[in-house]
């Protein structure tokens, strides 16, 4: 295991060199496969999706094949991703044509210069902060050692907590040190096993937590003073300019799904349950779909309000007007 001194020094320098060389080589290669690929010539339509009722319209569209129907010349593929930032990175790298993510990360991206806009809203949902800890009756009971989960930094859940903190204590960053980033399923498990004191989460996880006896500490509709959007479908401006028909078809399909859920929730629940191999029974899904406050819509709402708040606390530099944040697909809808 012994080596000489000389080569060891060289190895060390070589290591540093290697890192920079690697960055200098890999980076441009990665950047090379950029948005240029998603331009007019391509017939690929890769869409980010996921599990759970937040993605219900997309799940229905995929199951019913509505998009393939509307775009017979295109190859449609659905990719389940781990979260909003994976979706954003996929769009930037050109491996996705349509992304899905939360409202707050969308605004953050706009502020950072990501050239994207909203194709369609997906849903409005109330987001709860829940706890199983008897000690915690209100935000004031949280101590420095208590862990609170949110799906990722800069998510709308983090914004809900920040806003409530500002309301109650005048300091939006009061609980920033308590936050732990966790996907919703992990957060639910951690809450149930007592590893975290509270979770800021979303349907259906918050309902499942409630069933297990969790108490609701915050309701985002109350904190934000009304219903707001949760997830939206996005695309890069360059792609949109070259493929307006794809985005129109997507928007229309989401509208169809919205109508199905509103008119025949039982049927929609059946489709959703089947898509997940019956992991959640249709009756359960139906219950979730029809809960108070949950609304499936193609209209993004809450952009101005959330943007203003994020600008106030310095999360973004400036809030853009909602009209500048959407594609013509939602023209004529009451975007807010």
């Amino acid at each position: 295991m012994t080596t000489t001194t000389g080569p060891r020094r060289r190895d060390v320098l070589r290591g540093g060199l290697g890192l920079l060389t690697g960055a200098a080589v890999v980076g441009p290669l990665a950047a090379c496969s950029g948005p240029q690929e998603g331009s007019a010539a391509s017939r690929e339509v890769a869409i980010a999706t996921g599990y759970g009722i937040s993605f219900a319209p997309l799940t229905i569209i995929e199951a019913r094949g509505w998009l393939e129907e509307a775009l017979p010349d295109h190859t449609v593929s659905w990719q389940v991703l781990s979260g909003g930032s994976a979706s954003r990175d996929g769009l930037l790298a050109g491996s996705l044509q349509a992304g899905t993510g939360g409202l707050a990360p969308f605004l953050l991206g706009v502020d950072s210069g990501v050239p994207w806009r909203i194709v369609s809203g997906l849903n409005n949902m109330p987001l709860w902060m829940v706890t199983l800890d008897d000690r915690i009756r209100s935000l004031a009971d949280l101590t420095a050692d208590d862990r609170v989960s949110s799906p990722q930094p800069g998510s709308i859940q983090s914004m809900v907590l920040a806003r409530a903190a500002r309301e109650e204590f005048g300091d939006p960053d009061r609980f920033t040190a308590n936050l732990v980033a966790m996907p919703h399923p992990d957060a639910l498990q951690a809450l149930l096993s007592g590893q975290i004191a509270a979770a800021v989460t979303s349907p259906p996880f918050q309902y499942q937590a409630e069933e297990e006896g969790a108490r609701v500490l915050l309701d985002s509709y109350e904190v934000f003073g009304g219903p707001h959007g949760f997830n939206v479908v996005t695309a890069l401006e360059e792609y949109a300019e070259a493929n307006p028909e794809v985005l129109e078809a997507l928007h229309a399909a989401i509208g169809r799904a919205r109508d199905l859920i509103a008119d025949d929730p039982a049927e929609a629940a059946r489709v959703l349950s089947e898509a997940e191999d019956g992991a959640i029974i249709p009756e359960r899904y139906e219950d979730y779909l029809t809960r108070e406050g949950i609304e499936f819509t193609t209209t993004p709402q809450g952009l101005a309000d959330l943007g203003a708040f994020m600008a106030e606390i310095g999360e973004i530099d400036a809030a853009a007007a909602p009209a500048d944040l959407v594609f013509p697909t939602v023209a004529g809808e009451p975007v807010s």
Partner: peptide, 24 residues
């Protein structure tokens, strides 16, 4: 010298090829 040359090449590429700052 090698390190400086690589860094120069890196900077040159970024400046000239217009790589998106969101990626690199």
């Amino acid at each position: 010298v090698l390190l400086a040359a690589l860094i120069a090449a890196w900077q040159g590429y970024v400046s000239a090829a217009g790589v998106s700052p969101l990626v690199f």
